[in-house]
Design a binder for these strands. Sequence first.
DNA 1: TCCAAAGTTTGAATCGTTTCATTGTTACGA
DNA 2: TCGTAACAATGAAACGATTCAAACTTTGGA
Lengths: 341, 341
Amino acid sequence: MNRSTSIKDVAHHASVAVGTVSNVLNYPDRVSQRTKERVLRAIDELGFVRNDAARQLRAGQSRTIGLIVLDVGNPFFTSVVRAAEDAAALQGSAVLLGDSGHNASRESNYIDLFQEQRVQGLLISPVGDVTDRLDLLRERGVPTVLVDRLADDSKYSSVSVDDDAGGYLAARHLLDTGRRRLAFVGGPTSIRQVADRLQGAQRAVKEEPDATLEVLDSDGQTVLAGRSVGNMLVERGDLPDGIFCANDLLALGVMQSLTMTHALRIPEDIALIGYDDIDFAVSAVVPLSSIRQPTEALGRTAIELLAEEVESENAKHRAVVFTPELVVRQSTAPAEGCSAG
Amino acid sequence: MNRSTSIKDVAHHASVAVGTVSNVLNYPDRVSQRTKERVLRAIDELGFVRNDAARQLRAGQSRTIGLIVLDVGNPFFTSVVRAAEDAAALQGSAVLLGDSGHNASRESNYIDLFQEQRVQGLLISPVGDVTDRLDLLRERGVPTVLVDRLADDSKYSSVSVDDDAGGYLAARHLLDTGRRRLAFVGGPTSIRQVADRLQGAQRAVKEEPDATLEVLDSDGQTVLAGRSVGNMLVERGDLPDGIFCANDLLALGVMQSLTMTHALRIPEDIALIGYDDIDFAVSAVVPLSSIRQPTEALGRTAIELLAEEVESENAKHRAVVFTPELVVRQSTAPAEGCSAG
DNA sequence: TCCAAAGTTTGAATCGTTTCATTGTTACGA
DNA sequence: TCGTAACAATGAAACGATTCAAACTTTGGA
C-alpha cells in the first residue's frame, strides 16, 4: 500500500542531495562527519531500507550467487550449502539456494530464475545434461562452477571429491586391520560414485597378493537394500571377513542384518565400513567406521573458484579434487589375530 | 563484460517499439500474431532474458517469498520447504530460502537480505525474539506467517502442529494395544514441543484408571541420549511395558539399548513409539511406530495464508493448527494378552 | 465514401538507485 | 588579500523493465 521510503525521502528529510545519501551508504569516507550523522539519523527515523532491485539495476549485477543442489535433505549437501553461504557472506554476497530434488525440470526452472535475477554466478550439482545451458550462461557472462562433479572438459571449474581415493582408503583400512576376504556392497555401478569407489577398493586389494574382493550388487542405496544383501550373505554362508559399503545406509542395513538376525559379531567376525559418515554412523549399535567427505572445503572452494571467474572473464578454469578422510570407529577394530600389513 | 541484451535490443532487432516487446511478454493477447512471432524470434535469436531487477523496480514488488527455517538438514523442514516451493510456484512466486541454523544473527541477516529484496512476504520459524522486527516489517507492508509456532497474539497468521494431540495419539495407541505401565522419554520440558507432547500423553493416561505414566528425562534428543535412558531403565529393573519417546532419535536409541545390549524383545516385552516419523523409523531393526507431522500441509498452507495477507492488507490473521497422524509399525504390535480397550 | 469502433502499436514517463562531472566550500601558504 | 588545492555536496543521467495515453490501422456498417 504505502510505497516504501526511498533514498529521495531520506535526502529530503536530512536536507541533502540524493547523491549524498548514496555516498553515506556506499562510500562513507567521502562524506563529512556532520552530514553523515544527519543522514544516518534520517535513515533511522524513516526506517529506510535499500531497494536492492534498483541498486542491482544500476550496478548491472547482483550480489547474489545461485546454488542448485540435488537434495537439501542430504547431509552432504546441507553441509556444502552452509559452507558456501558462509564463504559468500565473507565476500559480501548472498546465496540463493535451489533444490532440484534430482528433477531436471526443477533444475531448469531454477536456472531460469537465477538468470532473471542476474546472479553473479552459479554453483550447480547437475541432474540432467545442462551443458548446453551452462555454455549459454557462460557466453552471457555468468560463470559456473560444478559441484561434486568433475568437469569433463576444461570449460568449467569444478570441485569434487576423489571417490577412487575414498574407495582405496576404505579397502586399505580393512586390509591394514588384518582382513583378507573383502566384499564390496554397492548399487548399480552405472552410478559414477559407486564405480569409482569400487575401483579404488580394487586397487587396494591388488596390493595384497592373498586378498580377494567380491562385488555384491545391491538394489539401491538404502538401509533395506543393505539388509537384504546381509541376509543373502548369511544364507549362502561363505562369509567375507571385511565388508565395504558404498554408503552408510547400506552399511547400517548390513549391520542390522548380521548382528540382529544372525548373531554375528562386528567387528570380531566381520569388519564393516561405510561411506559418507552420516550422523547415524556414530550412533549405530556398533559405531560405524566410514569415509568422510570434506564438505566444508567443497562449499568454500566452490565460492572461491567462482569469485576468480567473476573477477576475470579469462580466469583459468580449475578442477579442484579433494581427498576424503578415513574415520575409524568400532566396526573395524582390528581382528584378534591381526597381521597388520 | 558484454552488457546483456535488453528489451530495447529486442525491439530494435524486431523493428517494433519497446512497449510491444513488453506486451508480448506480459499480455500476449494484445499483440497481433505476426508481430508476436517476429518478437519471439528476436528474443530467441538474441537470447534475451528478462531482467528481474528492472521489472521489480517498476512493479514495486518482487515475485519472491522469503522462507527462514531453523535447519534445512532437519527432514521436517526439508519437507516443509519443498511443499512451500511447490505451492509458491503454482501462484507464480519463487521462494528464497534461508537457513538460520538456530542462530539469531544468521536469522537477522536473512531478514535484512529479504527486506532489501522486497520480498512479497516472509515465512519464518523464529529462533530469537524477532517480534519487534516482524512488527516493523508488517508496518512496511511485508506480511509474515509464523511456521511451526503458534502466534502468541492475533497479530500474525501461523501454521503449527498440535503437539498435545500428537502426544495423546501416541499414548492412546500404547493404551489401546494393551499397555498400562507407560514411560515418557524426553529432553528438557522447557522445550515447548516436549512439554506439549508430554501433556497430551498424560491426558490419555488419565482416561485409563489403571494406567500410569512415568517421566524419564533425557539428556538431549539424540540416539545416544536414548541409549543411556534405555541402559538406565534396564539397570534399575522395574520396566514399563510401553515407552513413548519425544522424538524418533531417542526412540531408536532406546531400541538399540533394549534389544542389543539387553536382549529384551520389542514389541513383546516393551512397546515403543517415537515422534516425527523420520526416514530411519521404517528401517530400524524393529520398524518403529511414530507420529507423523503433516509437513506438506504446513508448507502449502503457510503460502496460502501469506497470499491472503498479500492480497488484502487487512486480512484476518488465522492460526491454523494441524493434527499429526499415527503411523503404526511393528514396534507397537499388540501384546499377546491384549485387552484392547 | 465516410465514420466509428475495435484492434495494434508507439514511446515518453516512471520506479530507486549509483555514478560522476560540476559546483560550492574550506584551509592555508604566499 | 588572493590563489589554489583539498574536500564536500550536488543533481542530472543512466540502468531495463512496465504502463498508459495517444496515435495509428483496420474493419465493417451506413
